[in-house]
Computed example of a mutant assay.
Amino acid sequence: MTHGADQPLPDAPAGNWVDRHAPVAWRPYLRLARIDRPIGWWLLLLPCWWSAALAAVALGKEGPDPWQLLIFMIGAIAMRGAGSTYNDIVDRDLDAKVARTRHRPLPSGQVTARQAAVFLMAQALVGLIVLLQFNRFAILVGLASLVIVAIYPFMKRVTSMPQLVLGFAFAWGGLMGWAGLAGRLDTPAFLVYAAAIAWTVGYDTIYALQDIEDDPIAGIKSSARLFGRHARVGILICYGAAVALVVGALLLAGAGIPSYLGALAFAGHLGWQVRRITPGDERVALMLFKSNRDAGLLLFAGLVLDALIAAG
């Protein structure tokens, strides 16, 4: 009998459909894929949507292609699940030492490493099918991200800034969205990518505040530990860089007022997060981390509105 059998995870939303309605046999796999915690795939998806929408603005399109937005979502869910499963396979011994993660399916014994590996391959296959829907250039760009994804789980053992490597992976959509629509990469796409990296480091530092006491015991390094009592300042710098890079991308793409209003709303939301950071309060840290979905959607809404107005 497993010691963590069918136990809801602490960072999953209370009453989520996996815990309430999914067949018991499926739940460990759905938790491996983080289906009970959708914020992960949202944060992977949003840079794709930003980039696709800004490319539409720059190219005079009437908004981003709805079909591409949909397959970006499907791909984000699949690849977030695959990446999380891979991460949990690599980290199963470390996860057993951290209170927030010790009841995950692998360290708790609900799933074996071999079963998780098979599940990983199934999710990666879905991601590949999605990737093949894009043009050849975008396919090559997408495949290039696999190198970063492969090394990320090991970074928390060797660097105090694993969040930066996570940013390189999670922000990749900043390149994919543009490549999917334009079939090439232009300077604004690289600025969106850089902005998404800085944003990722900021929000994942907030997330890491939850584990700041357990991580030293497990030998895990993080930006939250690196910044220490200056975490608020570190996050502010990351968020400030993200906003500045977004504005640079808008300028080079010839964006209009709605895009800048979206960027202003994005900046306002990030500023609110920084003000609300409460050292030692894990509940607030998790709430602020999850709120980044809304921050990202505010920017995306401004970009889409800009494209629709400009094309109309």
Score class of each variant (00 low, 15 high):
Val141Lys: 06
Ala242Asp: 12
Asp19Ile: 05
Leu131Lys: 02
Leu43Ile: 10
Ala169Thr: 09
Thr205Ser: 13
Glu213Leu: 13
Pro8Gly: 09
Pro66Phe: 12
Gln163Lys: 13
Pro64Asp: 05
Met121Thr: 12
Leu298Pro: 04
Arg157His: 15
Ala301Pro: 12
Leu70Lys: 05
Ala117Pro: 03
Gly4Ile: 05
Gly256Phe: 00
Val274Asp: 00
Ile89Trp: 04
Ala307Gln: 09
Val158Lys: 08
Phe137Trp: 11
Ala55Arg: 07
Asp91Glu: 13
Asp204His: 01
Phe170Lys: 09
Pro162Thr: 06
Ile148Asn: 10
Arg27Ile: 01
Gly183Asp: 11
Gly271Asp: 08
Val118Cys: 09
Trp26Ile: 13
Glu213Phe: 05
Ser51Glu: 06
Gly228Pro: 14
Gly219Cys: 08
Tyr239Ala: 02
Pro153Phe: 01
Pro8Ile: 12
Gly256Cys: 04
Asp6Ser: 08
Trp17Cys: 10
Trp41Asn: 05
Lys290Asn: 14
Ile139Lys: 04
Ala301Trp: 07
Leu94Trp: 09
Ala82Met: 07
Leu299Ala: 07
Ile35Glu: 08
Asn292Gly: 05
Arg114Asp: 09
Ala231Pro: 00
Leu164Asn: 11
Tyr193Lys: 00
Ala267Met: 08
Phe72Asp: 02
Val18Ser: 02
Leu59Pro: 05
Leu125Glu: 04
Ala295Cys: 13
Ile197Tyr: 08
Leu70Gln: 12
Val158Arg: 08
